[in-house]
Nucleic acid binder design. Structure first.
Length: 623
RNA sequence: GCGCUCGUAGCUCAGCUGGAUAGAGCACCAGACUUCGAAUCUGGGGGUCGGGGGUUCGAAUCCCUCCGAGCGCGCCA
C-alpha cells in the first residue's frame, strides 16, 4: 500500500517547552560525561514509560527489552528515534500512534530534548538541544583515549583463538587477514570490558611436523655439501628451511648424519618447529600482533596424561562417544572406502548432520579429537565465551566444534566461529600469482614490507569477514579518497595540521585542549552551525558503534565508521573554502577558534581511538 | 546428492541483529583552489535489494522454496 508522505503524519507536540538554559542542561548531563548518549536517551525513554506505568496508561510489569533508540536513517527525522510505542502497543492494548503521543508527552518535559514528534507508524523522533551534542563532544575530548570504552563485558573472560597457522613455514598472505581480524576483535573486546586472552594454537603434533622434520633433515645434509636433488613430493620445498639445516649442522655437526631416522627425527623436528615458530612470531610482530599464549598441541598428548584420551573417555561416560559405522560420503566417490567400525562423537545430538570420527584407521587421533581436547582446556581455564577465527574452507567444521563445546560444557559455554574469506591479491587490478606448491608463495612479510603494516591492517578490516576481499597492492598506497587507509589517516593528520596553524597564529592558545577548565572556558556553545552539529553527532555515535561492533564480533564496523567520520570532517574543512566564517581558524577571533579547535580535537580523539582499535597508526603529519 | 557462506547501483561494497523515501566509494556528467595541506569538497543521473511465496504495524534483514556463485563433504590440518 502506498502511504501518504511521512510529513503528512508529523505531529508537532504542543506541550514542548524549550526554555532550559545551556547551563541547566549541562547540569542534567553531568552524570553521563563519558557515557553513550544513546544509552542515556534510552534510559530517559524507559523513564517516561515507567511514569506511564505509574499513571496506569501502561500495564505493570511491562517488558521493555525490545525498546531501542537509534539515529534515524534520514536526519530530517531528528537526532534520535525510538520504536517504543510500536513494540509496546500490543501489551498496552493501544494503537501505536496513540501510545506514542503519551510517551512523547512525557519526553517533552525532558530538559535535554528540544523537540518531539510522532511520525509514520508510531516512531517517536527526538531532536536534542545543541547543548546535548556539545556536552557529548566535551565528554569525548575530556575522556581522550578512554572515550568509547564501556563495561558491557562486565569483566567476563573471552578466549580469542586466531591465526593458528601450522608451524611448517613462514606465514603467507592468506593468514594475515585472520590474524588482523582476531587481533582487532580482541582489542575491541578488551575496550568494551571483556577480559580477553589472545591465543594461538600450535599444531606441532601429527604427520605434517614429521614431514617438516624430514624436509629440514634434507637441508641439513645439504648444509654438509650433499647434493640432495629435488625435494620429494609431500615434503616442504621452500628455501626457508635452509637456515634450519645450517643451524642443525652448527649444533650437531655430523652426528645426525649417521643416526637412523628414529633417532634424528625428534631432534630435527624440535629444532625445526622452534625455528618456524620464531619466524611466525616475527611475522606476527611485523603486524604488531603478539598473542598472549601459544598453546601447543603436543602438550595435549605428550604430557603426564593423554588429554585426548581423557576427554574421549569423559565424553564416552556421558554417552557422547560410541563405536559405530558411518555411511560413505555422498557425492564425490571415495576410492578406497572401507566400511568399518570406528570411534564416533555424537555431534548429531547437537544439530550436526552426521557423527564425527575421533580416530583414524591407524588408531591415531583425528584433528577433531585433539581439537576437542584443546577446547576442553579452554573451558578448564575458565572461559565460557570462546571465539575461533578460521579460514572459510573450514566452514564444514563449525557445527561439530560447537557440538563438542556444548557437550563439554553441558551447554554452559558458547563458541562463536568467525570464518574469514579469501584474500585475492592484486597489483593494479591484475591478479598476483600465488603458487604454494612450488614453495614460492607470497609471504605475509613480503606484503607488509611492500605496502606497510597500516595499509594491510586497515584493508583487511575494511570488509566483512565473510566476504571475499580484493587487496590491491598498488591501490593501498595511493594517496586519494579511493584509498580508505590514506583517507582516514589524512583526516587525523589534517586535524593536527589545524592545531599547528592555529598555534602559529595564536601563540597563547592552551597547550592541553582536554583540560576541563580549558573546555569550560572554550565557549563551546559557539559550535552551532549545522555542519558542526553533524560532526558532533558523528562523534557522539562512536561509543554506540564500538559496543555494536564488539557484541557482534564485527571489527569492520569501526573501519567503516572511521571512514564516515573522516568524510564529515573533510567536508566541513572544505566548507571553509567557500564560507570563510566556517573555517576552524578565524584570524581575529581567538575564542571561536578555540571552540572549533575543541571540535577538531574531538575528531582527532575518535580517529586515533578507532585506528588504535584496528591496530593502525594515526600519524599527525603525512607530508 | 548434502552442508556451510553468500547474492544489494555498470564495478567494489555498507546497511547499526525487524524500522520510515535502501546508502557510500569508484566510474560517468557538471562545478569549487589569491586555502586552515584541492592528497580535498559540492551537486547530478543510475536499484523489481537474484526470482517467488510466507510471518507482522513494518522485511535487504527472519522462515520456506527455486536460481546462481564460492568453500567443504571418514583415515589433511
Amino acid at each position: 500500500m502506498r502511504s501518504p508522505s511521512t510529513h503528512g503524519f508529523l505531529t508537532r507536540h504542543p506541550n514542548c517547552v524549550r526554555r532550559a538554559s545551556y547551563h541547566s542542561v549541562v547540569a542534567s548531563l553531568l552524570h553521563m560525561a563519558t557515557k553513550n548518549i544513546f544509552a542515556d536517551i534510552l534510559d530517559r525513554v524507559r523513564g517516561a514509560n515507567n511514569e506511564l506505568i505509574a499513571a496506569g496508561v501502561l500495564p505493570a510489569g511491562l517488558d521493555q527489552s525490545r525498546v531501542t533508540v537509534e539515529p534515524p536513517r534520514d536526519p530530517a527525522h531528528g537526532d534520535i528515534a525510538t520504536n517504543a510505542a510500536m513494540v509496546l502497543a500490543k501489551d498496552a492494548g493501544r494503537r501505536p500512534r496513540e501510545l506514542a503521543e503519551f510517551i512523547a508527552d512525557k519526553l517533552c518535559a525532558d530538559g535535554m530534548i528540544a523537540n518531539v514528534t510522532v511520525a509514520g507508524p508510531g516512531f517517536i523522533n527526538l531532536v536534542l538541544k545543541p547543548a546535548a551534542w556539545i556536552e557529548a563532544l566535551r565528554g569525548a575530548v575530556e575522556s581522550g583515549s578512554h572515550y568509547g570504552k564501556s563495561d558491557i563485558g562486565g569483566g567476563a573472560t573471552v578466549n580469542v583463538e586466531y591465526v593458528s597457522a601450522n608451524p611448517t613455514g613462514p606465514m603467507h598472505v592468506g593468514h594475515c587477514r585472520g590474524a588482523v581480524f582476531g587481533d582487532a576483535l580482541a582489542n575491541l573486546l578488551a575496550f568494551t570490558g571483556f577480559k580477553v586472552t589472545r591465543e594461538y594454537y600450535v599444531n606441532d603434533a601429527g604427520a605434517q611436523v614429521d614431514q617438516l622434520a624430514r624436509s629440514a633433515y634434507l637441508r641439513y645434509r645439504e648444509a654438509h655439501g650433499e647434493n640432495i636433488g629435488a625435494i620429494p613430493d609431500g615434503l616442504y620445498p621452500g628455501d626457508y628451511l635452509k637456515p634450519v639445516g645450517a643451524a642443525l649442522k652448527a649444533q650437531y655437526g655430523d652426528a645426525l648424519r649417521v643416526a637412523p631416522e628414529a633417532r634424528w627425527l625428534p631432534v630435527v623436528r624440535e629444532k625445526a618447529i622452534e625455528m618456524m615458530m620464531a619466524t611466525v612470531r616475527a611475522d606476527l610482530a611485523a603486524l604488531n600482533i603478539s598473542p598472549d599464549l601459544f598453546y601447543s598441541e603436543r602438550t595435549l598428548i605428550g604430557g603426564a596424561v593423554d588429554q585426548v584420551a581423557a576427554v574421549i573417555d569423559w565424553l564416552r561416560a556421558r554417552g557422547y562417544v560410541y563405536e559405530g559405522r558411518l555411511p560413505p560420503p555422498k557425492g564425490a566417490p571415495v576410492e578406497d572406502w572401507e566400511d568399518r567400525e570406528q570411534t564416533l562423537f555424537r555431534s548429531t545430538a547437537f544439530g550436526d548432520d552426521v557423527d564425527r570420527p575421533l580416530r583414524k584407521s591407524d588408531g591415531s587421533y583425528t584433528y577433531f579429537a585433539s581439537d576437542i581436547a584443546y577446547h576442553r582446556s579452554k573451558l578448564e581455564r575458565g572461559f565460557r565465551s570462546l571465539i575461533d577465527v578460521w579460514g572459510a574452507d573450514h566452514g564444514g567444521y563449525v557445527k561439530r566444534m560447537q557440538a563438542a563445546v556444548a557437550a563439554l560444557s553441558e551447554n554452559a559455554a558458547e563458541l562463536d566461529v568467525k570464518l574469514i574469506q579469501l584474500v585475492k591479491l592484486l597489483r593494479s587490478g591484475a591478479p598476483v600469482r600465488m603458487s604454494k606448491r612450488a614453495g614460492d608463495f607470497v609471504t605475509l612479510r613480503e606484503v607488509v614490507d611492500e605496502v606497510g603494516r597500516d595499509a594491510v591492517r586497515f584493508m583487511m578490516l575494511f570488509r566483512k569477514n565473510d566476504a571475499v576481499l580484493d587487496f590491491d597492492l598498488a591501490k593501498v598506497i595511493e594517496q586519494s579518497r579511493d584509498n580508505p587507509v590514506f583517507y582516514v589517516q589524512y583526516g587525523h593528520a589534517r586535524g593536527h595540521s589545524v592545531f599547528r596553524n592555529a598555534r602559529s597564529m595564536f601563540a597563547d592558545l592552551p597547550t592541553d585542549l582536554t583540560n576541563p577548565t580549558v573546555l569550560t572556558d572554550a565557549g563551546l556553545e559557539r559550535l552551532s552551525n549545522s555542519a558542526e552539529l553533524a560532526l558532533m553527532r558523528q562523534i557522539a555515535l562512536y561509543p554506540r558503534v564500538v559496543e555494536g561492533a564488539a557484541l557482534a564480533h564485527e571489527p569492520h564496523r569501526i573501519a567503516f565508521y572511521l571512514f564516515d567520520l573522516a568524510s564529515e570532517f573533510h567536508a566541513l574543512w572544505t566548507l571553509g573554502n567557500s564560507a570563510p566564517h566556517l573555517r576552524f581558524i578565524i584570524q581575529d577571533d581567538r575564542q571561536t577558534t578555540l571552540a572549533r579547535l575543541v571540535l577538531v580535537q574531538g575528531v582527532v580523539t575518535v580517529l586515533a581511538s578507532g585506528l588504535a582499535l584496528l591496530g593502525v597508526g594515526a600519524p599527525s603529519e603525512m607530508r
